[in-house]
Amino acid sequence: MTSRLTINRTRATKVFLSAFLILIAAIAVYAFLILKHDPSFVDLNERLLPMSWQHPFGTDHLGRDMLTRILLGFQLTVGYGFLALLLAVAIGVPIGVIAGFKGGLVDRLLMRVADAFLAFPDTVVAIVLSGLLGAGIENLLLAIILVKWVNYARLARSTVVTERQKDYITMAKINGLSEWRIMWKHLFPHLIGHILVLASLDLGKIILLISSLSYIGLGAQPPAPEWGAMLNEARPYFQTVPALMIYPGLAIVTVVLLSNLLGDYLRDKFDVKKEVAE
């Protein structure tokens, strides 16, 4: 019974992961090979068209091709999501490793800074930053990085703190290896699994954050084809042409769902305890 369940579950995950890959591949192919429409080409004669061969997803209120905008929105939303994630990891992990390895004053200082950042909810930071620096996707990214690096710093620190007491680290110190070498060659590889799992779970959240803040006008600015911004633009036409809201909404749901499933899959993959139990 249980074995059948697990088989089904892994199969489902594989299907979802394949779907993710196919989606990305399709977008790449579409965007680079058969992109026929300019995503911001306005043609008021062709506004609010239904599905057709010319416009598979129809057109929006300014006559722009929806499919093109949805797919380029993938580049924008997911691309910026990845970028924010990468930068958050690139900032958070080294800080966490150094804090955990050095301990003492350095540790306390860095972790208090992290606590200070943690005290603000991401939305608040984003609103304040766009108030100070003006609305725009770059400032939104900055806000996301400022909030998210803390998670990676804390994760890296806690792993390093437990690992650094082990004998192989003492051994490396006795062997006279430099602290730098110990941190990156002996400690860091332990972290990769944990970070990968957290990052893939975070990706969905970040995409959601970008879209929701763009929806309220703090992120990507029109005419950028960002899904949240598209939802906002489509609001007045919701009753007459609901498809304008359904497509970007579905796109967001699909990508967030897939990145969460990817996270779950990676978490199971790296779950050492489960391996031992089996």
Binding site: K166, D167, Y168, T170, M171, A172, I174, K185, H186
Partner: peptide, 12 residues
């Protein structure tokens, strides 16, 4: 130089 009790843990 040192030799430890925990041989398992003394290598990365």
């Amino acid at each position: 130089s040192y030799i430890f009790q925990d041989y398992q843990g003394s290598f990365t």
